[in-house]
Every structure is written in structure tokens, then in C-alpha cells.
Lab assay of single mutants.
Amino acid sequence: MAAGGDHGSPDSYRSPLASRYASPEMCFVFSDRYKFRTWRQLWLWLAEAEQTLGLPITDEQIQEMKSNLENIDFKMAAEEEKRLRHDVMAHVHTFGHCCPKAAGIIHLGATSCYVGDNTDLIILRNALDLLLPKLARVISRLADFAKERASLPTLGFTHFQPAQLTTVGKRCCLWIQDLCMDLQNLKRVRDDLRFRGVKGTTGTQASFLQLFEGDDHKVEQLDKMVTEKAGFKRAFIITGQTYTRKVDIEVLSVLASLGASVHKICTDIRLLANLKEMEEPFEKQQIGSSAMPYKRNPMRSERCCSLARHLMTLVMDPLQTASVQWFERTLDDSANRRICLAEAFLTADTILNTLQNISEGLVVYPKVIERRIRQELPFMATENIIMAMVKAGGSRQDCHEKIRVLSQQAASVVKQEGGDNDLIERIQVDAYFSPIHSQLDHLLDPSSFTGRASQQVQRFLEEEVYPLLKPYESVMKVKAELCL
């Protein structure tokens, strides 16, 4: 049975990233139509530049190519590739079939990587351009969430054990800070992308030097003109047959890092959902379990974690691919890159769409948070109580021993009897502590235990987050809708 299948058929496997999760716009960027249309555009740009620099290419040939950029006979191309065992030459023939007058000058002087690699770089750039505003929107939604809850005390956790208090907004800023680093890295790697350009079979530009009869300047002009037509500021000066596969490492490393950030955020949300302090959106008709109707599973956060793990592992592909590119190139890269580049971007696209949807509907339960604080705060307040007693004339050592005994009794009630923490009640009825009984409410005010959390939130948002989001103001209103 021949390899390949009808990918629109229910009898043929289709990647869930495309069929179930990723956005239509990201799927289109990695589609065959987008790819092969870009090949034709690159052939047109090459012909236009070659004509401008004096090669015998007519206006009629150029116009014929322009008129057929979208006229792609995919069936013919597939048949040609089956016959020739070469995808680029299959599309040269297919393009030439609908451009008979231009057929002889299509791909003039070029090698397969002229269309293959340059198209990949265009796709990487455009895919990054799709991700950047999506990530900015996630940051914006979380920034709104953090600002609104900047002063809401909550129990902090280290080692997932109760620690000092923080605020809900401050905790959210930990998430935002990681995503801001990801946004900066995505922008950097996007701006650092260079075009492969017009380089020939081993990167020496020998074929173009021959076409222009040894004119170095025209060869350099050709490279520059096509690079500018493709919208790049610069091209690699040095290439082998391909652009260095280190570029793929750079791009997928940034995406993998984004995956790590999203995994951490969504894990926190899942843990908070278990504590009943916070939940992701839950639709009115949504079913959490087929057997347990009360369940409210954090399905979206779980999906993000599941896909983020996949995204983090994909960076190993370009690392290994770059390491086995012998001399000017081997074909070890080809099949692998067809999979890992598309999957990385479709996965990143999915987790950003999902995280935006989550961040637009996060639900906080202040009463649950308050109750958990009441359970733990008495123990945390013991040092403040000791200091207040010393100020009232008591002995630190005597007070410490009193607190120690009462704390152990209260802990026994919590752990052995399943009761509430009654340390404060014990202190309130103990005559030894009568000098500070009137101060206990103040000493137990949760806001006095959150330090500068709310001020940190305000400063972080104003100095770091809002300036970073400013270039994306025009796209901030787009909502994230999930079908599944």
C-alpha cells in the first residue's frame, strides 16, 4: 500500500493539533497551500530580480507567473513527485505547466533550498508574528487579574506546605514575570531571523556568478533584492546548502521555554482548584465526569500541561538535527523538520489560546482563602504575639514557653481530632496574655502579614508589564474561544 493518505478522510490519521486544537490561522501558515504558494512567490521574486539585473526574462513571463501564483494543481504535483521522487522539481514542473512561456526560467540558477529553506524562514517569521500578540493578550488578562487582587491576602506555599502570606495578585505576578520573559525572547528570536537568500547549491553562489558572467556586484544585488522582497532586513552571508540548523534550535528553545512557563502556571491553577481557592472557567453544560456528576475538573489547565510537556520535548529534535548536518548538509534534517517545526508552533498556539481562555474567566473564592488563612495564621502570628507581650512588660522566655504549650495543644486538636485551630481562643482565655487581649485582632490582621506584596504588584505592572504590552494595544480586544 502506498504511503500517505487522504487526510480529510475519517479513515486516515490526522494530527489532533490540526484537527482538534490549533487555530485556523496557525494551521494555514503550515498548510501545503501556504507552503507551495510561497515557493511560487519566491520563484517570481527571483525572476523579477534577475530581470532587473539584466537576464533575458520578459515582462510577459513575469506576468504569467504572477497570474498563476494561486493556480496550484495539487493532484498534478503529487503525481509528479511520485514520478520524480523530488518535491521541488515536482512543483517546478507543475508551475511550468500553467506558465508555459515562463517554464524555462522558473528556478533559474537556484537549488531546492532556495524555495525550501527560504519558505521555512518566512513561515517561522509569520508563525512567530501570530504567537506574539496571543502571548501579549494572556499577559494582559493576567495583569488585569493581578491588579484587581493585588491586596487580597492568601496563604503562600513553599514545598506545598503553608508559608508566609502573600497576595493573590502577587502570586499571579510570578506567572506574568515568566511570560514577559517569554514574550521578550519570542520577539528577540523573531527579529534575529535572517533570510537564507540566493546562495546556490553549497552556499557559494557559483551558479549565479556564472549567470551574471562573473559580476560579483550583481550577485550581491540579486541576494539583497530577493531578501528585501521577502520582507527581511538581512540575509546570511555564510550558508551551506541550507541555512544553519542552529536557527531551528533557537526558535524551538524559546517555544519550549514558553511551554515550561505555561505548565507551571496551569499546575498552580490545578492545585488551587483542589484547594477550592480558584477555578478555571466551567461552562453551564460542561460535564466533569461521566460517573461523578459533582466533579469540576480543571480540564483546560490539564490540557495545557499535557501539550506543554510535548512542546518542551520537541527542542531535542533540532538539537540532534543540527549535530548531524555533515559538511554542507545531509538530508537527516528533512523529514524531522517537516514534523517538529509545525508541531512546535501548533502546540504553542494551542496552549496560548487555551491559557487566554482560562485567564479571561478565572474565578476566585475569597471566603475559602480566608478560612485557610484562619487555619494557619495563628501559628504564624506567634512571633508577633511574643513581641507584643514583651512590649507590655512580659518575659520573652516565659511567653515563648506559654505559646509553645498552647500551640501544641491547638495542633493536637487540628491533627488528632480534625478540629479547627483554636490557638487564639486559648490565648484569649489565658490570664497571662490579658495585657494584649485587646491587640489580638490587630495582630491577626492578614494584611499585616503580606509585606509589600501589593506595592510590588503595582510597581511591576507599571514599570515592566504595561510598557512591554504597549506595541500590542491594537490587538488586545480579541477574545479566545474554545470549541473543545
Rank of each mutant, 00 (worst) to 15 (best):
I385A: 04
M89W: 01
L44R: 04
M292V: 02
D248G: 03
F145V: 09
C483Q: 15
R33S: 08
D120K: 12
E343R: 09
K233G: 10
E79W: 13
S407D: 02
A47L: 04
Q416M: 12
I249D: 07
L423T: 01
M476H: 15
R83W: 09
Y243K: 06
R300L: 14
Q439V: 10
D11Q: 08
Q177K: 01
N357F: 07
D398S: 11
R303I: 05
S454D: 13
I249K: 05
Q409T: 09
Y432T: 07
R404Y: 13
D317K: 05
D317G: 14
E213K: 15
M292Y: 04
Q184C: 12
L44P: 02
V405S: 12
Q375P: 03
L311T: 04
A342F: 08
C99T: 13
Y34W: 10
L314T: 06
K233P: 10
L211E: 03
T154S: 12
M299P: 11
R459V: 11
Y472S: 09
A235C: 13
V429W: 12
D332M: 04
M65W: 00
N118M: 01
G200R: 00
R309Y: 07
G214A: 06
I269N: 00
K35W: 01
F460R: 03
Q458H: 12
V251P: 02
R404A: 08
S261G: 14
A143N: 10
F95I: 07
I339Y: 01
A256K: 02
G214W: 11
L311Q: 08
F433I: 06
T204F: 00
Q458I: 07
S306I: 00
G5C: 10
V168F: 05
Q286N: 06
R300E: 03
N336G: 14
Q397S: 07
F345R: 04
D248Y: 05
S12T: 11
E425A: 11
A411H: 07
P471S: 15
G393D: 08
I427Q: 04
S334I: 04
N421P: 13
D182C: 00
K233E: 09
M476W: 14
N353P: 08
I123E: 06
Y243A: 15
E464K: 08
Q356V: 05
V138S: 13
V478Y: 13
A431S: 15
I237Q: 07
A150D: 06
A2P: 10
L275K: 02
R141T: 15
K218A: 12
V254L: 10
D129A: 12
D333P: 04
K276Q: 06
V364K: 06
E48H: 06
L121S: 08
R452Q: 08
H310L: 08
Y466I: 14
F327L: 09
N68D: 10
E425L: 10
C172T: 14
I424C: 14
N274Q: 08
L46S: 02
V198A: 11
T52N: 10
D216N: 12
G288R: 04
E80T: 13
K35I: 10
C483R: 14
E462D: 11
